[in-house]
């Protein structure tokens, strides 16, 4: 991509991060940490990778995205709002009674959400089912799913991976957000998943390991995914949980906690400063 495109994505990613803070602050609940670690990937998906149209969110030929780590819905909602699926103001209704923005994604309420998720390990299976159905039906769409590195402790994830390889789902991309933290502490201490890329390869995937905050690396990985035939594709992206808000970075405390008013001010000041800097570049 060009330097300008990269800069544009960086600016959009800051806005997505602002949306995450807006939503969780207004809700006084939610999961900012894992939303922020995935913010760059979500930005890339919705502004560069996915063939989707906010004006026609149910188009049968669209690409599908399943947020298997459904608790990071604030990140997905911010990306969808920025892409125009619904109003930015809606983000402030997150988790409120009557809002279409549920604590975890609901495909029947929120435009642009392709699968209801939240119970870890299930979204990846649904995504594999979409990819399998797409191949069966001759639909050339691609199916992407984003998992947490804690989520892969669920055995069902590996059942889904086995199925994806068994059916040679080369229209299926599983992205694992390796931010290294889960609720009870570092994943390496809670349940060490070891070499995730090697495990995926052993399960029949073609795999790229990248820096999940580098848009050029993300682009290269997705390009390789499209060139890969006869195998599903895995992306293990190394990320920083809470990235973009200094006091949330690499902090397990911010897995599922909302910023209070003072913390909200600090976070928005930091993000606004970052945006101003990027806009000046």
């Amino acid at each position: 991509m060009t330097y300008e495109e990269n800069m544009d994505l960086q600016r959009k990613a800051v806005k997505v991060r602002m949306g995450i803070i807006e939503g969780t602050h207004a809700a006084k609940a939610g999961h900012p940490g894992g939303s922020l670690s995935a913010a760059d990937m979500l930005t890339y998906l919705y502004f560069k990778e996915l063939n989707v149209d906010p004006k026609d969110p149910k188009n049968p030929d669209r690409d599908r995205f399943v947020l298997s780590k459904g608790h990071t819905a604030p990140g997905l909602y911010a990306a969808l709002a920025l892409r125009g699926f619904f109003s930015w103001e809606d983000l402030k209704t997150l988790r409120q009674i009557g809002s279409h923005l549920q604590g975890h994604p609901n495909m029947n309420l929120t435009p642009g959400v392709d699968m209801s998720t939240g119970s870890l390990g299930q979204g990846v299976s649904a995504a594999a089912g979409m990819a399998l159905a797409a191949k069966h039906m001759g639909n050339e769409c691609r199916v992407y799913t984003l998992l947490g590195d804690g989520e892969i402790e669920e055995g069902q994830v590996w059942e889904a991976f086995m199925l994806a390889a068994n059916y040679k789902l080369d229209n299926f991309v599983a992205i694992i957000d390796k931010n290294g933290l889960q609720i009870d502490g570092p994943t390496a201490e809670v349940m060490d998943s070891g070499d995730i890329a090697a495990k995926l390869r052993a399960f029949g995937f073609e795999v790229e390991e990248i820096n999940g905050h580098d848009f050029d690396a993300i682009e290269a990985a997705f390009n390789k995914a499209k060139e890969t035939k006869g195998k599903p594709f895995g992306i293990v992206m190394h990320t920083v949980k809470g990235l973009g808000v200094s006091y949330m970075e690499n902090s397990v405390d911010w897995h599922g906690k909302a910023p209070n008013d003072a913390e909200y001010e600090t976070a928005m000041n930091e993000l606004n400063a970052k945006l101003a800097k990027l806009e000046a570049m």
């Binding site: 049968p60 599908r64 399943v66 495909m107 392709d114 699968m115 299930q122 979204g123 299976s125 649904a126 995504a127 594999a128 089912g129 979409m130 990819a131 399998l132 159905a133 797409a134 069966h136 039906m137 639909n139 069902q156 059942e159 889904a160 086995m162 199925l163 068994n166």
Partner: peptide, 20 residues
Amino acid sequence: CGIAEGNMMAVAAGASTMGL
């Protein structure tokens, strides 16, 4: 789907969203 009933149910769910 092999001996993996939980996975099968969610796979079927995903497939149904495609019109099957």
